[in-house]
């Protein structure tokens, strides 16, 4: 747990102001940020998926009914049965099953230029994962289009190791 604080000095202080006093027209603020890092144990299935990303491989889990779930779940949501612990490789290319356009990206978005948030079903998978498509313009997007992953240079074992997906050229 860590806490950062810092006193913001008034922009145009006419002179030293004694602590606890504020001159008219001045606003003092104190930034106080509390953070608590939780640890998430991912288990063998999600852990296997994340390890695959580090090797630029996209892995899915096969359910007892034969469906391939990407990203993998530990238990088949239809039946509650555990999935096969041996993950199967899918993709790398996938099909956009639905999408929406983000015209004005915010600081926490994965790209700093307009992009699509899309559900992408990798080849060989029966489900789709949410990710970003770097298509340039909404006119370049359509449901059913084929996209390929653009991997980040230094993998970390997170889903953001795929920087974005691009329309197949």
């Amino acid at each position: 747990m860590c806490s950062h604080s810092g006193v913001t000095e008034p922009a145009a202080a006419p002179g030293p102001t004694p602590p606890g006093q504020t001159s008219p027209g001045q606003t003092r603020t104190v930034e106080n940020r509390l953070e608590f890092p939780y640890t998430r144990t991912v288990g063998p299935v999600i852990g296997g998926f994340l390890a695959g990303l580090r090797e630029q491989r996209l892995l899915g889990a096969r359910s007892r009914t034969g469906r391939v779930l990407v990203p993998p779940l530990e238990y088949d949501p239809d039946t509650g049965d555990p999935v096969d612990p041996d993950l199967v490789e899918v993709g790398p290319q996938g099909t956009v099953t639905t999408w929406t356009w983000v015209a004005e990206p915010k600081p926490k978005h994965p790209l700093d230029r307009p992009f699509a948030v899309a559900l992408i079903r990798p080849d060989g998978a029966d489900t789709a994962l949410v990710h970003a498509v770097d298509a340039g313009t909404p006119e370049a997007m359509h449901t059913g289009m084929v996209v390929t992953p653009r991997w980040r240079g230094e993998p970390t074992g997170l889903v953001t190791d795929i920087e974005a997906w691009e329309p197949r050229r």
Partner: peptide, 26 residues
């Protein structure tokens, strides 16, 4: 229990209870 996820942890207890009752999730 670093070796299991939270769902996996719960499921260990659930599977043991179901085995004891000789029932399944269904």
């Amino acid at each position: 229990r670093d070796d299991v996820s939270m769902p996996g942890l719960l499921r260990e207890a659930v599977d043991r209870a179901l085995d004891d009752a000789e029932l399944t999730l269904a």
